[in-house]
């Protein structure tokens, strides 16, 4: 079940081959949905689900896909899965679906999906592809949640919607940093995470 190669497919994307930090995929949605933690987590779960399923489906039909229209086939599969996720969200978590409205649709254009389908699912069997999808989805989610935690803590003084910074701080002149809520701070936060990550993994540094 978990041979060495499969383990690599599952665990490498968490750090050494992280889609956001190392492959620099999926930056757009990292900027968009990380103003607070709840949408970030839901977005992460949605991406994991869509990615694992689309990886498996593409891997299952990989031998039948005509190479000339493979991108179209990938897009149709991903788009269908995204619409299904969206319909489920509207039915079971309406508030979050309202918050994520546009971004769910944007999963289709999320570079991680197309990138992993092209690079992995087209050349591998379903089980490793499934693990690769889960691994990359998790790697993406971890970064999303870290960025969202930083931004929500300093931007709104809360985590998961619960007030963390106590009232007496505000009474003594502390103020939420409005800039943290705006997209540029997501970019800067991601950059800081990449900096720390590269510093700890010297083999990833480029000359």
């Amino acid at each position: 079940m978990l041979s060495k190669k499969n383990k690599e497919a599952l665990f490498n994307p968490l750090s050494k081959d992280n889609p956001v930090l190392v492959q620099i995929l999926g930056i757009c949605s990292t900027l968009a949905v990380t103003a607070s933690m709840e949408p970030a987590i839901v977005m992460g779960i949605s991406v994991i689900a869509v990615m694992a399923l689309s990886n498996v489906i593409i891997s299952l039909i990989r031998k039948s896909i005509p190479t000339t229209i493979r991108i179209i086939v990938q897009l149709v599969v991903v788009a269908a899965l995204v619409i299904i996720v969206q319909q489920f969200l509207i039915a079971f978590d309406y508030d979050v679906s309202k918050q994520l409205s546009v971004f769910i649709g944007l999963i289709i254009t999320n570079c991680i999906l197309m990138g992993r389908l092209e690079a992995f699912a087209l050349n591998n069997r379903p089980w490793p592809s499934f693990l690769d999808g889960i691994g990359n989805g998790l790697g993406y989610t971890i970064i999303l949640v870290i960025v969202a935690a930083v931004r929500e803590l300093f931007g709104s003084g809360s985590l998961m919607g619960f007030q963390v910074i106590p009232q007496w701080c505000y009474d003594h002149g502390y103020e939420n940093n409005g800039l943290m809520i705006l997209p540029p701070m997501a970019l800067i936060t991601v950059a800081c995470i990449i900096w720390v990550h590269r510093a700890r993994n010297p083999e990833l540094m480029e000359n």
């Binding site: 896909i65 005509p66 190479t67 086939v73 269908a80 619409i83 319909q87 509207i90």
Partner: peptide
């Protein structure tokens, strides 16, 4: 796999399948 007929048939079947699944999900939810 790269003949025109195969490609057209492949896309047609794929679209019909995906359309059916989506319609079903929509109706159910």
């Amino acid at each position: 796999k790269n003949s025109n007929i195969y490609q057209i048939l492949y896309s047609a079947i794929m679209v019909v399948l995906v359309g059916t699944v989506l319609a079903f999900v929509y109706m159910a939810l």
